[in-house]
Amino acid sequence: MTTDQVMTIQNLSVEYPTPERTVFAVNDISFEIKRGEILGLIGESGSGKTTAANAILRLLERPGRVAGGQVWLNGETELLSLPEHEFRQLRWSELALVSQGAMNSLNPTMRVRDQIADGIRAHETNPAALTKRALQARIHELLTMVGLPDRVYRVYPHELSGGMKQRVGIAMAVALSPALVIADEPTSALDVITQRVVAQTLLDIRDRLGISVLLIGHDIALMAQLADRIAVMYDGHIVEAGPVTEVLKSPAHPYTRMLMDSMPSLLERKPLVVVDEAAKLEFSHYLKPPLRFVEVAPGHRVAQFD
């Protein structure tokens, strides 16, 4: 069965028990990712965006644990309750990760071609795709896909720049045509021009391969360039979500508005909007769970505040 939704997250919570109290890093969040869309999950440090991604990928480290909720893949498989050996089969083949440090997670002693081949061999189930010739052709195709020159096939990671390594990471992530790629701050460590090239690559895999992307980041401007829809996280909650054009044009939640106001722009030199830590904490008064959402425009939902 295929549905319009690649992933549906329902009431996901992640808790970290501490001696004093239990901290909810992710607090009852729900959202869905449609087929072929780029969903931007945006938040500042400590908002819970990476924890949410790790929970979906079952990569949470103790003492963090999922306190509740469900994650449905393709509307048919609930990931959080799946036995480990079954979940492992979905990694890479259905769900792949590109992390901020993907460029540093390449094995320095292996040529790029061998690393990509390794990933394919470990997860590919069709034996015809594993012949030397088939593998070779596929790796070349993947490198072209992410816009890398052919020489990359033979080189070692240290011979590549950061942006090129990041694109090797994307090539590996899409090697098995997963339904969803989770990209966690994939361009944050890169220069502006390199960031644009890597962002272009993410758009390409969506446009040409139809792969959905959950893009996690803190940069509203980058989200405006890439995402179809965005969800804004603050203190473990999603406070606002909707089509990117709609949310950025008429941000409804005070926190989203503050984020937008504090964003510098090259379009105009405007006075600085100074926000301090205390002012940011104020927003937590709006968060009295369970949050209730209002739809202010089609598909644009905002947590109620008063």
Binding site: H158, G163, A199, Q225
Partner: peptide
């Protein structure tokens, strides 16, 4: 010019124009 055109603008109506190519260079 390339650098300034690549700074993302927080407005979905003002997307990057065209594609940008990176020179094939390595760290060495």
């Amino acid at each position: 010019k390339d650098l300034i055109a690549s700074v993302p603008v927080p407005d979905p109506a003002k997307k990057w124009q065209g594609r940008i190519q990176m020179a094939d260079e390595n760290e060495a």
